[in-house]
Design a protein around this nucleic acid. Structure first.
Lengths: 330, 330
DNA sequence: GTGAAAGCGCTAACAG
DNA sequence: CTGTTAGCGCTTTCAC
């Protein structure tokens, strides 16, 4: 491993000078500069980012915590954040938050130990209290998909309630009145808010089922749904995975979508375009949100000043993507 | 930020002693030890991993290079690697290799700059030569899904040819003789090897189509396939995404799987279970492979000694997952 | 057992 | 413009 010292020696200058040309911190004579540069090339010198961060007390890593990268939703989120880190010459530290509060905390702690002062975290298990204490401790921490009122300038979140309303309005517009909600059973706000938004727009008695927000959960819910099929013309699923699970189980039983029953999903995940029929769904603009969160964190923590013109709206609105899983109900 | 110095002062000992208790490097008096520990607690001291790595010249990060995390296949891979890093108290550095050789190189370079000496890389664009030079420079670098003969003890890869053969044998066993291959058009070995394995087992003239290895590519290939439907009873798709694309386009045209035509995929990706009908496919055991690669890298680079009993077989075999997209052809 | 001191690779005043 | 010096936070000989 070649260091500044080696370069300095070969170029016949001090390490400070080498540092100056590496950092482009002006004020270096053209000639010395080229001497140093050629020495760097000869030795195949690569600055040690770790040492640099330590000495300058500036951090070149951005930490991301998500519950699970194997879930395509978070894969998408991670990918978007990575695009920002690449643009800003930062490195991405990935920490997995997992299923419980403790491992979410550990994920953050390990980022702190790495001296990481800019981070975006997706946490659903940690309480507002512990999360708030981290927010206080780490000025560069930005929350995604979560809203804590005292820190709203550091939260990027989705208007879930509005999403629920959009779904209801669309189904009503299509002539549906008897609807089943297939919701997530996880104890987080999102399903409750979507339900609330939906029911505000369609207060008549709807059927309601809960399961895990996965394909299997969707199948499970469909099994219960089947008993009420005569009273239901459409279903609003918590997410596309569940929607696809419902479709799959239904079609196994010979019930066709959208001919026999309509269905609307949420997320616009990979699934949505790939399934049969293609899914009408509510777009969750996670790409934009993730980029916004990363940029926000970078700008708050002072790691980057170039991108100062960030969106002023921190609350994102889902919007309808019409495909063909919903039919007109006369 | 509290440092060793603060702890040392509060505990009335030297920083060396603090370091000793932090690292459990024995030889510390019980009493001093508890004094130090309570001081650490009082001050909420967290060792700075970056400084530690610098001073000890031991690295606590594992770097991962994949082309794209938003692709569920790589999400899965990343998730498996992360499970190993968590187990071994390492941090995961994620670098995206992207589409071309240059960005793959940059991904590796940025890991080197981070002083990362253990890494697993999935590279398909870099030439054997440049990759070999990195392998020489970085003893802890392990390749996944790629085979370079001179470095075979640092490669974890899939027997693609065998996968092709399995697909052919299964379809033959099911009575199919006229088969279309829907292959990836990417210029990497995998599609060629799968094709070779397939054709060795079924040398009769098959139909052959190429497209990008995605859902859209599958749809595109299906459009061409449709013209030859009278001469084809089954299709072998390069991966599940393509298979699902084929199914989708076909069913749009009123052609049913598996009644009218059978199809077999590759990967056993998320898609495979979710689509209609559920896809018969070849399992790509990427989870195990990724864990093996991470562990191998860790053990080679000397970052971890606990997991010495690694699998001795570096070449993984795909295996058949039978679902219901293939029917008997009499 | 414990402390003093040197140093990991680099940056950042401060002189000159 | 450039070199000297003093650290960043931690580990690690080497004495005591």
């Amino acid at each position: 491993m070649t260091t500044v010292k080696d370069v300095a020696k070969l170029a016949g200058v001090s390490t400070a000078t080498v540092s100056r040309v590496v950092n482009n911190s002006g004020l270096v004579n053209k000639e010395t500069q080229s001497k140093v540069k050629s020495a760097m090339q000869q030795l195949n010198y690569r600055p040690n980012t770790v040492a640099r961060a330590l000495a300058s007390k500036k951090c070149t890593t951005l930490g991301l915590v998500v519950p699970d990268v194997s879930d395509p939703f978070f894969g998408q989120l991670a990918s978007s954040v990575e695009q920002i880190t690449r643009l800003t010459n930062m490195q991405l530290l990935l920490s997995i938050g997992g299923q419980d509060e403790r491992s979410e905390q550990q994920a953050i702690e390990s980022l702190i130990a790495q001296n990481c002062d800019t981070m975006v975290v997706h946490s659903k298990k940690m309480s507002d209290e512990t999360l708030s204490s981290y927010l206080n401790e780490l000025p560069g921490l930005v929350l995604i998909n979560r809203f804590i009122a005292e820190f709203q300038s550091r939260c990027i979140w989705l208007n879930n309630e509005y999403g629920g309303r959009l779904a209801a309005e669309y189904l009503i517009h299509k002539g549906h009145k008897q609807i089943a909600i297939v919701n997530s059973c996880l104890e987080i706000d999102d399903p409750l808010l979507r339900k609330k938004g939906f029911e505000n727009a369609l207060p008549s008695k709807n059927f309601y089922f809960e399961a895990t927000p996965t394909f299997d959960g969707g199948e499970e819910a469909a099994n219960k749904l089947i008993e009420h099929l005569d009273k239901v013309t459409a279903v609003f699923a918590y997410n596309d995975a569940m929607a696809v699970g419902v479709i799959s189980k239904l079609s196994e039983k010979g019930i066709r979508v959208p001919e026999d029953i309509s269905i609307i999903g949420f997320d616009d995940a990979l699934f949505a375009r790939v399934c049969q029929p293609k899914l009408t769904t509510l777009k969750y603009p996670i790409d934009q949100m993730a980029k916004h969160a990363a940029l926000l964190s970078l700008s708050i923590s002072g790691s980057n000043t170039e991108f100062s013109n960030l969106p002023s709206e921190y609350c994102y609105q889902p919007y309808l993507i019409e495909r063909n899983s919903v039919s007109l109900n006369e």
